[in-house]
Design a protein around this nucleic acid. Structure first.
Length: 481
RNA sequence: UCCUCAGUAGCUCAGUUGGUUAGAGCACCUGACUGUUAAUCAGGGGGUCGUAGGUUCAAGUCCUACCUGGGGAGCCA
């Protein structure tokens, strides 16, 4: 009897010289061809390991149980492959089956499935090439983000997920309550009495960690958050989730320009990091997207493939222009003059529609665009008022295909101006006393932005729907798994 | 939430102006073959045509409502 062979990951067997040694791998069967060739995948990388069985020497009952989806432990000699399509393979000496998989009922077949179908079996879709690649990239992007900030001396700040403040103004919130849903305690007006609730007040899930991040930035200088975020908007699009992850750096002593510099450097770093560390998965997704493109009409196809597109982003400076300059370009643009825009651009102060942003990014500049200095009327209370009294020091980074990937601003650090803005927008300043306190005690110029994590992963993987870059998407009417 | 398109076998889809017993490929099962790469060849099983109403001699096909999904829009990250 041989000594027990330690399990290897398939990725390690492919990258280290182990030919001629006895190895053990464990994983899930992708296909079993010719009663002889098992394609086994353990998720460590895109590639399968081919395990070759001598079916004349194997028990037939065991062979019958090697079906798509079954989980196996395979031991044998790692050898140069005799066939084409793989460099090495395992000549099987023994097989242990951890888990059967009834081929009649297992929904994944060794063929292409639609993303819509896979979404319905989100518990099994990580076993596909596409989702394996997306999830590995999602990890790398996540790790790259922490590395970027850590290397720059930023501190990772954990902001609360349950929040008692509803002043963020970033949209509808999910209520968190322990009150009896049928017969809650009521106040004299007959409304639910949240003073009797778990926290003694009405609480919600966070829509942003920004305000808390600002508190920490005015002590630690440079911080960032990276956590779940919840929006109860009834948004049904390919780029919205009810639960998503957001990164929010906040920096003391950064003005708007420093903020834009950081945002651009950050995004480019993340993309470069992924290109360097996820080559194989990116190549797979690139090929996948190219195949998909072939079935589309010419004018809908992308000009550049996925990997080239990513490389292009890292190699070229983003276009920076003010809101005012953007309005000028849009006003004089062909689609505007020909009345092709659903929302014509005619006056300064209007909010830009996604068709306008898409025109600037995809047609006019053909690269990422940073718009800044927006009219005060269309932006949030905490953004710093510019000297013209008409605009605020806000900035949005717009990406091809997905639109706004980053939104940020220099924050209003002047106590009186901030208080005035809070009043103007009808927010109860009592809810924000702690926020205003930072402006009373040692205030400082500071800036920050928010990056939608899934939108970043969407751009890097080229996936068209945001529901396919998060393991278990939450959207209106869907909280399965 | 609004506009729009779609829902037929486990999956991907075809199904004529409403007209006999609703089809194909893949998957699955049986057999053959065995260095395969979405293996191949022969045979077989598999359907309340999204749900509920309605029109009609007759509905997968037409009408209404609802459900689910796609694309677009709004809100945003």
């Amino acid at each position: 009897m041989e000594a027990i062979t330690k399990r290897s990951k398939i990725k390690d067997l492919l990258t280290t010289e182990k030919v001629g040694t006895r190895v053990n791998i464990k994983g899930w069967v992708r296909t079993f061809r010719s009663n002889r060739f098992i394609a086994l995948n353990d998720g460590s990388c895109l590639q399968n390991m081919q395990a070759v069985v001598d079916f004349e020497k194997m028990e037939e009952a065991l062979l019958k149980r090697i079906t798509t989806g079954a989980c196996l432990s395979v031991t044998g000699m790692l050898t140069k492959s005799m066939g084409k399509g793989q460099d090495v393979e395992i000549m099987v000496e023994s097989i242990h089956i951890y888990g059967n998989s009834d081929p009649e009922k297992y929904p994944l077949q060794p063929k292409k499935h639609s993303l819509e179908f896979l979404r319905e079996i989100a518990h099994l879709r990580p076993r596909t090439n596409t989702f394996g690649a997306v999830l590995r990239i999602r990890h790398a992007v996540s790790y790259g983000i922490h590395k970027f900030f850590n290397d720059k001396g930023f501190y990772y700040l954990h902001t609360p997920i349950i929040t008692g403040s509803d002043a963020e103004g970033a949209g509808e919130m999910f209520r968190v309550t322990m009150l009896d849903p049928v017969h809650p305690p009521v106040d004299e007006k007959g409304h639910a009495d949240f003073s009797k609730d778990f926290f003694g007040k009405e609480t919600n899930l966070t829509v942003s960690g920004q305000l808390e991040a600002e508190l920490a930035a005015l002590a630690l200088s440079d911080v960032y958050t990276f956590g779940p975020t919840f929006r109860a908007e009834n948004s049904n699009t390919a780029r919205h989730l009810a639960e998503f992850w957001m990164i929010e750096p906040e920096m003391a002593f950064y003005d708007l320009n420093d903020n834009m510099d950081l945002a651009e450097e950050f995004v480019k770093y993340i993309i470069s990091y992924t290109i360097e560390n996820c080559r194989e998965d990116l190549e797979y997704l690139t090929k996948r997207a190219e195949d998909e493109d072939k079935s589309k009409p010419q004018h809908q196809r992308s000009e550049m493939n996925l990997i080239d597109r990513l490389g292009f982003i890292t190699a070229n400076p983003f276009e920076r222009l003010t809101y005012t300059a953007a309005i000028d370009i849009l006003k004089n643009s062909k689609p505007n003059k020909k009345g092709k825009f659903q929302f014509p651009v005619n006056e300064w102060g209007m909010d830009l529609q996604s068709e306008h942003e898409r025109f600037l990014v995809e047609k006019h500049f053909k690269k990422p665009v940073i718009l800044y200095n927006y009219p005060i009327s269309i932006k949030a209370f905490y953004m710093r008022l510019n000297d013209d009294d008409k605009t605020v020091a806000a900035m949005d980074v717009l990406f091809p295909g997905i639109g706004e990937i980053i939104g940020g601003s220099q924050r209003e650090e002047r106590y009186d101006v901030l208080k005035m803005r809070i009043r103007e927008l009808g927010i109860d300043e009592k809810d924000l006393w702690w926020y205003l306190d930072t402006r009373r005690f040692g205030t400082a110029p500071h800036s920050g932005f928010g990056l939608g994590f899934e939108r970043m992963v969407q751009f890097i993987t080229g996936m068209g729907n945001i529901r396919d870059v998060i393991p278990f998407p939450r959207t209106p009417g869907n909280a399965a798994f």
